[in-house]
Nucleic acid binder design. Sequence first.
DNA 1: TCTGGGGTCCTAGGACCC
DNA 2: TCTGGGGTCCTAGGACCC
Length: 415
Amino acid sequence: MEPAATILHADLDSFYASVEQLLNPELRGKPIAVGGGVVLAASYEAKAFGVHGGMSGWAAKELCPELIFTGGHFEEYQRLGDAAIGILDDYTPLVERISIDEAFADVAGCEHLFGSPETIARTVRTRVRQELGLPISVGVARTKHLAKIASQVAKPDGLVVVDPSRELEFLHPLPVGLMWGVGPVTEGKLEDEGILTIGQLAEQRTEWVQRLLGHAAGEKLSALSWNRDPRGIVTNQRARSAGAQSAIGRKPFIERIYRPTLHHLADRIASRLRVKSWHGHTITARVRFRDMRAVTRSITIDQPISATVTLAEIAEDLVRVVQADHPDERTITLLAISVAQLERDPLVQLELPLGLADEPRRPGTRRGASRLIADRAMDAIRDRFGREAIGYASATLELDRSVPDAFRGLAEKPL
DNA sequence: TCTGGGGTCCTAGGACCC
DNA sequence: TCTGGGGTCCTAGGACCC
């Protein structure tokens, strides 16, 4: 007997735009875009004009002059995204959340309680529509890859079930761009070789695909084109790095510009780390120039970091290295910091630091320790009075934030 | 009038060790 | 005088995902 199709992939349609249309009935049936400088989500009415996520705001307006820009209900995005995923949780504990609006679920063994996977998928769609007022597309298949593709094919607001006896019939006529791991670059390389469909890719030898796309990517895509997907549902994935970035428009590449921005980014990252008692060993800074080329510099240090000022100082040093290596670059458009090689902080786990502040400084205490104590005092104040209640003066100078901080949180992966 | 923000994984070269 | 080979870590860049 064939293994059953028990994997669901559920994906809320044009999520942010759908929430805005839910909250404001006047926006329903109209082309809307969430965002401003860049389109974060477009309603289906806007997509009909060619508007899509990632597009610049003015380019979208060119395509669709009556486009309405809206958005800003960040708490509602979070609440409704959580609620939709929560409906999946009612049917199985095996739920793998991919982002705010998307999740896999494995309903194997749930038939006797809730019916077939297809029945569960229909129920989930109905409940999300009735209880939350949102459209959601669901794909049901034997593997994650097929379920994901099925949900894309099902959009908008649809359901596609891939019968295990007809998987290749379903998969092979589809364009390679629907495969997980095929983006614009890979799609272009394949197109240059005359490969447009997943079936055409499946006809090629793995070795040939590997020479074209690299060892790992070639092997993975070959396997997926033959419908071999070994991945199972993984619950509770934790982040392996934490970062923050800010697009700053065109600004001169001088310390007075980059220093406050780096402090603000460092503050965001470090406070996130401290909440979960993590610290990290590898710090990477990224600078993007006027022509959108980006350069990174990184360093790995023995003494891990979670203090704001220490992280900011290291990031500044790295940015100065970029500057020394690119003396002709006078304009920057983006700054980013990332912290990786994360591990638990044993000192913070003792929950002593606030009390330690009263103790005499012992020889050998790391310099970062006193900074960490100050940071944790600040964290506590923010906990009671809000994030804006206190901060480093250096991090608050003349920052024009292209995206509100509240929006940034939506994309964060749990640490 | 351009082009967000938070992540993961892979590649390739060099350093270093045994 | 000749100059192996495997493994691991670090760094920089890039493709991709949502």
